[in-house]
Design a protein around this nucleic acid. Structure first.
Lengths: 170, 170
DNA sequence: CACTTTAAGTCAGCCATGTTGACATTCCAA
DNA sequence: TTGGAATGTCAACATGGCTGACTTAAAGTG
């Protein structure tokens, strides 16, 4: 492990010899890329006085309309107090609607309002635009590889949420 | 842009048709993967009472020993006040050494001490281990694609730092 | 030499977002 | 009917961003 080399096989793939240096470059690539990844939404959010936490909530509510708070907590991996603070401002500002559950009245089902949908779309389009450019520059096969590595990097329970995410369209 | 499809060519690659849904999955993959990416170091840092900001400083000082504060500010993209707070504790705790420049005595050159090197190694190994597993699971070609997409996702000035990073070993 | 600029550090204060812990309310389900 | 789950809320605190103002020392420049 400490000798700077590692080999392995999987599914008939050729042996992979990875130096610590190659791994480090991957780590740094993640660091710098994630900054680029969040830069555009951050600029938009600033205009409205929101932060990344608001973006995440808007994204996943938009993604799974009618989701309840507990489910959102699992996806976002924060405490309910943290999420609640964000959710409260979004509801107060009329971006998110919280509807009491029909079957289970303890649950609140979350939906984006018209303005919430609009902001989510603005944020999402900015982020998709960057992703689109990166995908085009990198090419078709690179995209598949990108996704495979990212999935393998997730914690298993996180990956479960990821795969449970609406798979329509793919 | 809003019709959910986008095509493009680059360097003789086949046309890429990307639905908004595919782009969204990429966005979510980044979100979940980055969480996995930081999870192991975060657990280690907690033991020592440090945060992610300390990790980043340790990483890049270890990466470019003798770097000065200004350079580090550019890499990390934070204010000097933010960096200074982190750096001060690392110096007080004896993990980082700050040496006055020889040619330019205004500059401070930063080095990891023995204990600093040890902690950096512990953090780095944890992160490399996850990267190694992900790389092996995804396979050789996936790794190349992963790196290509990440590079294309960076802001240009960030990419410059990334490429200027010591390229030894690759 | 005098002046300006640069590198670094510091202080004070603000904000966003994470955490714990304690507690109230509602209400399903055994 | 009672226990526990889901939700919401309050208080308090930590981390790590930020701005603005200011100092010190050294380097560069007319």
């Amino acid at each position: 492990m400490a000798d700077g080399k590692a080999g392995g096989t999987k599914g008939g793939q050729a042996l992979l010899f990875l130096t610590d240096e190659q791994l480090r470059k991957g780590i740094e690539a993640m660091f710098f890329a994630y900054r680029g990844f969040t830069a555009d939404p951050d600029r938009i959010l600033e205009k409205y006085g929101y932060g990344r936490a608001h973006h995440r909530a808007l994204h996943f509510i938009g993604r799974a309309p009618g989701t309840n708070v507990n489910n959102l907590l699992g996806i976002l991996g924060v405490t309910k107090q943290s999420l609640n603070r964000v959710l409260r401002t979004l509801i107060e500002d009329g971006l998110v609607e919280s509807r009491i559950g029909v079957q289970d009245k303890r649950e609140r089902h979350l939906y984006l309002s018209e303005t919430g949908t609009a902001l989510e779309a603005e944020l999402s389009e900015a982020q998709r635009a960057r992703m689109r450019v990166a995908y085009r520059e990198a090419g078709h096969e690179a995209v598949a590889g990108f996704r495979r590595v990212l999935e393998a990097m997730m914690d298993p329970d996180q990956a479960a949420y990821f795969n449970a995410m609406t798979n329509r369209g793919e």
